[in-house]
Protein backbone atom coordinates (compact mmCIF):
# COMPACT_ATOMS: atom_id res chain seq x y z
CA UNK A 1 0.00 0.00 0.00
CA UNK A 2 1.34 3.44 -0.96
CA UNK A 3 2.03 5.76 1.95
CA UNK A 4 2.38 9.46 1.39
CA UNK A 5 3.33 11.99 4.02
CA UNK A 6 2.62 15.63 3.45
CA UNK A 7 4.43 18.17 5.58
CA UNK A 8 4.43 21.90 5.93
CA UNK A 9 7.91 22.56 4.64
CA UNK A 10 9.86 21.42 1.67
CA UNK A 11 12.61 19.37 3.26
CA UNK A 12 13.08 17.15 0.26
CA UNK A 13 16.70 16.82 -0.79
CA UNK A 14 17.64 17.71 -4.33
CA UNK A 15 18.43 14.09 -5.12
CA UNK A 16 15.12 12.79 -3.71
CA UNK A 17 13.32 15.45 -5.75
CA UNK A 18 15.01 14.39 -8.99
CA UNK A 19 14.28 10.74 -8.23
CA UNK A 20 10.62 11.45 -7.43
CA UNK A 21 10.28 13.45 -10.65
CA UNK A 22 11.74 10.54 -12.60
CA UNK A 23 9.38 8.08 -10.89
CA UNK A 24 6.43 10.37 -11.59
CA UNK A 25 7.26 10.50 -15.28
CA UNK A 26 7.44 6.71 -15.44
CA UNK A 27 4.20 6.34 -13.50
CA UNK A 28 2.32 8.89 -15.60
CA UNK A 29 3.79 7.89 -18.98
CA UNK A 30 0.40 6.56 -20.07
CA UNK A 31 -1.23 9.89 -19.29
CA UNK A 32 1.50 11.63 -21.28
CA UNK A 33 0.99 9.32 -24.24
CA UNK A 34 -2.79 9.63 -24.03
CA UNK A 35 -2.81 13.44 -23.95
CA UNK A 36 -0.22 13.84 -26.70
CA UNK A 37 -1.97 11.33 -28.97
CA UNK A 38 -5.28 13.10 -28.62
CA UNK A 39 -3.65 16.47 -29.29
CA UNK A 40 -2.06 15.19 -32.48
CA UNK A 41 -5.27 13.48 -33.59
CA UNK A 42 -7.34 16.57 -32.96
CA UNK A 43 -4.96 18.68 -34.97
CA UNK A 44 -4.92 16.46 -38.00
CA UNK A 45 -8.50 15.18 -37.91
CA UNK A 46 -10.05 18.49 -38.83
CA UNK A 47 -8.43 18.69 -42.24
CA UNK A 48 -7.65 16.05 -44.78
CA UNK A 49 -4.62 18.10 -45.77
CA UNK A 50 -3.33 18.15 -42.18
CA UNK A 51 -0.25 16.04 -42.78
CA UNK A 52 0.17 17.26 -46.34
CA UNK A 53 0.64 20.77 -45.02
CA UNK A 54 3.93 19.76 -43.50
CA UNK A 55 5.01 19.04 -47.08
CA UNK A 56 3.44 21.99 -48.88
CA UNK A 57 4.40 24.55 -46.30
CA UNK A 58 8.15 24.08 -46.69
CA UNK A 59 7.70 23.78 -50.46
CA UNK A 60 6.03 27.17 -50.67
CA UNK A 61 8.60 28.58 -48.28
CA UNK A 62 11.33 27.18 -50.44
CA UNK A 63 9.89 28.83 -53.53
CA UNK A 64 9.66 32.23 -51.84
CA UNK A 65 13.06 32.07 -50.25
CA UNK A 66 14.73 30.90 -53.41
CA UNK A 67 13.45 33.93 -55.26
CA UNK A 68 14.12 36.43 -52.48
CA UNK A 69 17.54 35.27 -51.39
CA UNK A 70 18.93 34.59 -54.82
CA UNK A 71 18.45 38.31 -55.34
CA UNK A 72 20.08 39.19 -52.03
CA UNK A 73 23.03 36.89 -51.68
CA UNK A 74 25.31 35.51 -54.31
CA UNK A 75 24.60 31.88 -53.45
CA UNK A 76 23.37 28.93 -55.39
CA UNK A 77 19.67 29.68 -54.80
CA UNK A 78 18.35 26.13 -54.45
CA UNK A 79 21.17 24.84 -52.28
CA UNK A 80 20.98 27.95 -50.13
CA UNK A 81 17.24 27.49 -49.67
CA UNK A 82 17.76 23.97 -48.42
CA UNK A 83 20.35 25.37 -46.03
CA UNK A 84 17.74 27.80 -44.74
CA UNK A 85 15.09 25.13 -44.47
CA UNK A 86 17.34 23.04 -42.23
CA UNK A 87 17.61 26.06 -39.94
CA UNK A 88 13.93 26.95 -40.07
CA UNK A 89 12.70 23.47 -39.22
CA UNK A 90 15.01 23.40 -36.18
CA UNK A 91 14.14 26.91 -35.09
CA UNK A 92 10.42 26.23 -35.46
CA UNK A 93 10.68 23.36 -32.99
CA UNK A 94 12.64 25.39 -30.46
CA UNK A 95 10.51 28.53 -30.64
CA UNK A 96 7.18 26.71 -30.84
CA UNK A 97 7.91 24.51 -27.83
CA UNK A 98 9.16 27.44 -25.75
CA UNK A 99 6.29 29.71 -26.79
CA UNK A 100 3.51 27.23 -26.09
CA UNK A 101 5.34 25.71 -23.11
CA UNK A 102 5.15 29.07 -21.34
CA UNK A 103 1.41 28.51 -20.91
CA UNK A 104 1.73 24.84 -19.86
CA UNK A 105 0.56 25.28 -16.25
CA UNK A 106 -2.00 27.97 -17.03
CA UNK A 107 -3.71 25.69 -19.54
CA UNK A 108 -3.52 22.71 -17.20
CA UNK A 109 -5.33 24.53 -14.39
CA UNK A 110 -8.35 22.25 -14.78
CA UNK A 111 -6.25 19.17 -14.16
CA UNK A 112 -3.94 20.56 -11.51
CA UNK A 113 -6.73 21.88 -9.28
CA UNK A 114 -8.91 18.79 -9.38
CA UNK A 115 -6.50 15.88 -9.35
CA UNK A 116 -3.07 15.13 -8.07
CA UNK A 117 -0.95 15.07 -11.21
CA UNK A 118 2.80 15.64 -11.21
CA UNK A 119 3.36 19.16 -12.47
CA UNK A 120 6.15 18.23 -14.83
CA UNK A 121 3.65 16.26 -16.92
CA UNK A 122 2.32 19.39 -18.63
CA UNK A 123 5.61 20.90 -19.84
CA UNK A 124 6.44 17.38 -21.04
CA UNK A 125 3.16 17.21 -22.95
CA UNK A 126 4.08 20.41 -24.78
CA UNK A 127 7.55 19.19 -25.68
CA UNK A 128 6.33 15.79 -26.89
CA UNK A 129 3.58 17.42 -28.92
CA UNK A 130 6.09 19.75 -30.55
CA UNK A 131 8.43 16.81 -31.17
CA UNK A 132 5.67 15.24 -33.27
CA UNK A 133 5.37 18.47 -35.25
CA UNK A 134 9.16 18.55 -35.54
CA UNK A 135 9.04 15.05 -36.98
CA UNK A 136 6.52 16.10 -39.65
CA UNK A 137 8.55 19.22 -40.35
CA UNK A 138 11.66 17.10 -40.89
CA UNK A 139 9.63 14.82 -43.15
CA UNK A 140 8.82 17.87 -45.25
CA UNK A 141 12.44 18.97 -45.16
CA UNK A 142 13.70 15.62 -46.36
CA UNK A 143 11.11 15.12 -49.07
CA UNK A 144 11.72 18.57 -50.55
CA UNK A 145 15.46 18.47 -49.89
CA UNK A 146 15.95 15.13 -51.63
CA UNK A 147 14.11 16.35 -54.71
CA UNK A 148 16.26 19.47 -54.94
CA UNK A 149 19.66 18.00 -54.35
CA UNK A 150 20.16 17.19 -50.64
CA UNK A 151 22.52 14.27 -50.19
CA UNK A 152 22.21 11.66 -47.48
CA UNK A 153 25.05 10.24 -45.46
CA UNK A 154 25.58 8.34 -42.24
CA UNK A 155 25.48 11.56 -40.24
CA UNK A 156 21.69 11.65 -40.67
CA UNK A 157 21.44 8.55 -38.47
CA UNK A 158 22.46 10.69 -35.51
CA UNK A 159 19.45 12.97 -35.98
CA UNK A 160 17.46 11.40 -33.10
CA UNK A 161 20.33 12.12 -30.70
CA UNK A 162 20.38 15.78 -31.74
CA UNK A 163 16.59 15.94 -31.41
CA UNK A 164 16.89 14.60 -27.88
CA UNK A 165 19.44 17.30 -26.99
CA UNK A 166 17.11 19.96 -28.39
CA UNK A 167 14.13 18.51 -26.53
CA UNK A 168 16.00 18.50 -23.21
CA UNK A 169 17.01 22.12 -23.76
CA UNK A 170 13.44 23.24 -24.51
CA UNK A 171 12.06 21.21 -21.60
CA UNK A 172 14.38 23.06 -19.22
CA UNK A 173 13.44 26.47 -20.61
CA UNK A 174 9.77 25.52 -20.58
CA UNK A 175 9.96 24.47 -16.93
CA UNK A 176 11.42 27.84 -15.99
CA UNK A 177 9.02 29.94 -18.05
CA UNK A 178 5.84 28.01 -17.30
CA UNK A 179 6.54 28.25 -13.55
CA UNK A 180 7.25 31.99 -13.61
CA UNK A 181 4.24 32.65 -15.87
CA UNK A 182 1.91 31.53 -13.07
CA UNK A 183 3.18 34.47 -10.99
CA UNK A 184 3.55 36.95 -13.85
CA UNK A 185 1.01 36.33 -16.55
CA UNK A 186 2.52 38.67 -19.12
CA UNK A 187 5.77 36.71 -19.45
CA UNK A 188 4.63 35.29 -22.78
CA UNK A 189 4.78 38.71 -24.45
CA UNK A 190 8.39 39.09 -23.38
CA UNK A 191 9.20 35.57 -24.46
CA UNK A 192 7.95 36.20 -27.97
CA UNK A 193 10.03 39.33 -28.38
CA UNK A 194 13.15 37.81 -26.86
CA UNK A 195 12.85 34.75 -29.08
CA UNK A 196 12.52 37.04 -32.08
CA UNK A 197 15.78 38.68 -31.04
CA UNK A 198 17.53 35.35 -30.65
CA UNK A 199 16.25 34.27 -34.04
CA UNK A 200 18.29 37.00 -35.73
CA UNK A 201 21.31 36.11 -33.63
CA UNK A 202 21.21 32.57 -34.92
CA UNK A 203 22.27 31.76 -38.47
CA UNK A 204 18.96 30.54 -39.86
CA UNK A 205 18.24 32.69 -42.89
CA UNK A 206 21.88 33.54 -43.53
CA UNK A 207 25.32 32.04 -43.08
CA UNK A 208 27.73 33.22 -40.47
CA UNK A 209 30.16 34.06 -43.30
CA UNK A 210 27.83 36.87 -44.36
CA UNK A 211 28.40 38.69 -41.10
CA UNK A 212 31.40 41.04 -40.83
CA UNK A 213 34.12 39.21 -38.97
CA UNK A 214 34.28 41.80 -36.21
CA UNK A 215 30.70 41.10 -35.05
CA UNK A 216 30.63 37.33 -35.51
CA UNK A 217 31.53 36.71 -31.87
CA UNK A 218 28.11 38.10 -30.91
CA UNK A 219 26.56 34.88 -32.20
CA UNK A 220 28.53 32.80 -29.76
CA UNK A 221 26.40 34.24 -26.92
CA UNK A 222 23.22 32.68 -28.30
CA UNK A 223 22.62 29.14 -27.04
CA UNK A 224 20.44 28.62 -30.09
CA UNK A 225 23.48 29.06 -32.31
CA UNK A 226 25.04 25.84 -30.97
CA UNK A 227 21.80 23.87 -31.15
CA UNK A 228 21.07 24.89 -34.72
CA UNK A 229 24.67 24.22 -35.74
CA UNK A 230 24.53 20.71 -34.27
CA UNK A 231 21.41 19.92 -36.29
CA UNK A 232 22.79 21.48 -39.43
CA UNK A 233 26.05 19.53 -39.32
CA UNK A 234 24.05 16.32 -39.34
CA UNK A 235 21.17 17.06 -41.69
CA UNK A 236 22.69 19.58 -44.12
CA UNK A 237 26.50 19.54 -44.06
CA UNK A 238 26.75 15.73 -43.88
CA UNK A 239 29.60 16.20 -41.41
CA UNK A 240 30.09 14.56 -38.06
CA UNK A 241 30.08 17.38 -35.50
CA UNK A 242 33.37 18.00 -33.71
CA UNK A 243 33.68 17.15 -30.03
CA UNK A 244 33.04 20.77 -29.08
CA UNK A 245 30.03 20.90 -31.37
CA UNK A 246 28.58 18.00 -29.40
CA UNK A 247 29.62 18.96 -25.90
CA UNK A 248 28.55 22.61 -25.94
CA UNK A 249 24.90 21.95 -26.91
CA UNK A 250 24.71 18.96 -24.56
CA UNK A 251 26.11 21.12 -21.77
CA UNK A 252 23.62 23.90 -22.54
CA UNK A 253 20.75 21.40 -22.59
CA UNK A 254 21.70 19.84 -19.26
CA UNK A 255 22.24 23.23 -17.64
CA UNK A 256 18.80 24.34 -18.83
CA UNK A 257 17.18 21.15 -17.52
CA UNK A 258 18.82 21.44 -14.10
CA UNK A 259 17.87 25.10 -13.84
CA UNK A 260 14.32 24.25 -14.91
CA UNK A 261 13.99 21.51 -12.29
CA UNK A 262 15.38 23.85 -9.66
CA UNK A 263 12.86 26.58 -10.50
CA UNK A 264 9.99 24.07 -10.44
CA UNK A 265 11.12 22.74 -7.05
CA UNK A 266 11.11 26.32 -5.72
CA UNK A 267 7.61 26.98 -7.07
CA UNK A 268 6.02 23.59 -6.57
CA UNK A 269 4.39 24.31 -3.20
CA UNK A 270 2.95 27.72 -4.01
CA UNK A 271 2.16 27.36 -7.69
CA UNK A 272 -1.24 25.73 -7.19
CA UNK A 273 -2.43 28.62 -5.01
CA UNK A 274 -1.68 31.15 -7.74
CA UNK A 275 -3.44 29.40 -10.61
Amino acid sequence: MITRTYGATDNETWWAYVKRTGDDIVKYRHALKNIVTSMVQQRYRRSFFGVLWSFFNPLLNLAIMTVVFSLMFSQDPLKFSIYQMSGIVTWTFLSASINSGTQAFIHAEGYLKKLYVPKILFPLVTICNELVNFFFGLLGYYSIGLIFGLHLSRTHLLLPVAMLVLAIFSLGITLILSSITVYFRDISHFVQVILQGFMWFTPIYFKLDFIPEASRHLFSYSPFYYLVTLMRRLIYDNQFPSLAEWLIPIGIALFSLILGLWVLKKCERTLIYRL
Binding site: R4, T5, Y6, G7, L112, L115, Y116, E268, I272
Partner: peptide, 17 residues
Protein backbone atom coordinates in the same frame (compact mmCIF):
# COMPACT_ATOMS: atom_id res chain seq x y z
CA UNK B 1 -5.55 13.96 -2.59
CA UNK B 2 -2.26 15.86 -2.40
CA UNK B 3 -3.47 18.76 -4.51
CA UNK B 4 -2.86 21.50 -1.96
CA UNK B 5 0.39 21.56 0.01
CA UNK B 6 -0.04 22.18 3.75
CA UNK B 7 0.88 25.32 5.57
CA UNK B 8 1.41 23.68 8.95
CA UNK B 9 1.16 20.26 10.52
CA UNK B 10 1.52 16.85 8.98
CA UNK B 11 -0.73 14.57 7.00
CA UNK B 12 -0.22 10.88 6.41
CA UNK B 13 -2.21 9.08 3.73
CA UNK B 14 -1.88 5.31 3.31
CA UNK B 15 -3.69 3.73 0.38
CA UNK B 16 -4.49 4.59 -3.20
CA UNK B 17 -6.70 7.64 -3.40
Amino acid sequence: AGIYPLHAGQLLVRGRV
